[in-house]
Design a protein around this nucleic acid. Structure first.
Lengths: 218, 218
DNA sequence: CCGCGATACACCCCAACAGGTGAGCACGGG
DNA sequence: CCCGTGCTCACCTGTTGGGGTGTATCGCGG
């Protein structure tokens, strides 16, 4: 019996990339995008919350998923900070955290174990490159991290805001920003924002799973 | 005999505002927007180059107007720095400079005198508010200056860039930026840029009079 | 005539950002 | 097995930006 999975992220390309990464496992995982077009009543076994350029303060978002009767378990797909429970309290109701550094096969296995209520060992396996998936700016030569911080820059966040949403050090943020600047050919934050807007680095913001919430100010 | 006038500026509101300000003088001035839709072969007596958020370094732009066989005289509609010939050499071929602080009636008279090759006394009359006209962000409570610098901010210019294009002091720039921030409710440049994009503070960039030029990198 | 708003500029302070260098660790390919 | 790439962080420096306050002139409206 296949697991019905929803991928939650505001970036079209992220959702599609993750979906295509899981396509070869369609016998074990069925990806049901919680997008416009899907029946609001459709039930899913697991909602996979992808943290790419998601505000971690958007605990609201996760809380809404947990409350949602259509959603079985909520799993956070994160960069695998070795201790996700660190920081000032995570929102309750999360079934598990899985690392973005897992290979596709391991991701699928992990999801299956979570669905079967088996304990998942935190097998983060250290630091390695993100396998599979997709993200905005990939063809421009940006790495996943660079794209992530650039997305947040494009949305008008300060470096300190980005520290909070990514749980990285301020120094790392600055490093990623600099290398991203070099790759996209800008030297100021302002130009980077304009570049980002021109290249689809702003979230789409029209999601069904977000409906019911307040109409994002933006 | 009426004077055929073209208003040159990338901002729709600016062109329309100036046109409506001159509407009551339609017996003496006929406004022919050099916009898409106008026959490229249409001749105008005077091209009025509005410097609102125009790069003053865009001397290219003025030079192209001067060269254009469809254009009689080129007049620069500026803030009326008392000495427009100041700075590092203005582009040649400009028939006159007229101040933005002139009332509509005086503007019309000045254009008539210029057209008749009569000398125009520099009657700048000091510092006063801009009369008539229109600019983006007017209804948001922004003054013409605030809107102008905000436009340039939105386009990704640094404060020093803005100094060059507006010929104001860096201190003035910062003052205008701060008061604009207060009015639109932001505290950082990044947010101001996003606000500007959401409120049409970017030039339109599809002008016939600009055709033949290189496709703006933007 | 006096206040108010707009333009224009000055001086000051401090936080934020840009840019450089270096360094450790993990992984994958030659 | 080393080399390159990506992720992570640190330290340092210089420039830019944000914010406050104050001053001056002009023009409009009460």
């Amino acid at each position: 019996m296949t697991i019905r999975l929803a991928i939650v992220n505001d970036y079209e390309v992220v959702v599609r990339g993750l979906a295509s990464m899981l396509r070869s496992y369609s016998d074990r995982i069925e990806v049901v995008e919680l997008d416009a077009g899907t029946d609001p009543a459709a039930r899913v076994d697991i909602a996979l919350f992808d943290t790419f350029a998601q505000s971690f303060r958007d605990r609201e978002r996760i809380a809404r998923l947990v409350r949602d009767p259509r959603v079985g378990k909520v799993v956070v797909y994160t960069w695998g900070a070795d201790d996700p429970s660190a920081g000032s309290g995570q929102p309750p109701g999360i079934a598990a955290y899985v690392s973005k550094r897992l290979a596709a096969a391991d991701l699928v296995t992990a999801l299956e174990r979570i669905h079967a209520d088996e304990p998942v060992r935190r097998q983060d396996s250290g630091h390695g490159p993100l396998v599979g998936g997709d993200w905005p700016g990939r063809e421009e030569g940006l790495t996943a991290r660079e794209s992530e911080v650039l997305s947040l820059v494009t949305q008008g966040y300060s470096n300190n805001d980005i520290v909070e949403t990514t749980m990285l050090s301020i120094n790392s943020i600055k490093s990623y920003i600099r290398s991203a600047y070099r790759k996209i050919g800008v030297t100021t934050r302002s130009r980077a924002i304009l570049w980002g807007i021109d290249h689809g680095f702003q979230p789409d913001r029209v999601r069904l799973d977000d409906s019911g919430g307040s109409p994002e100010h933006r």
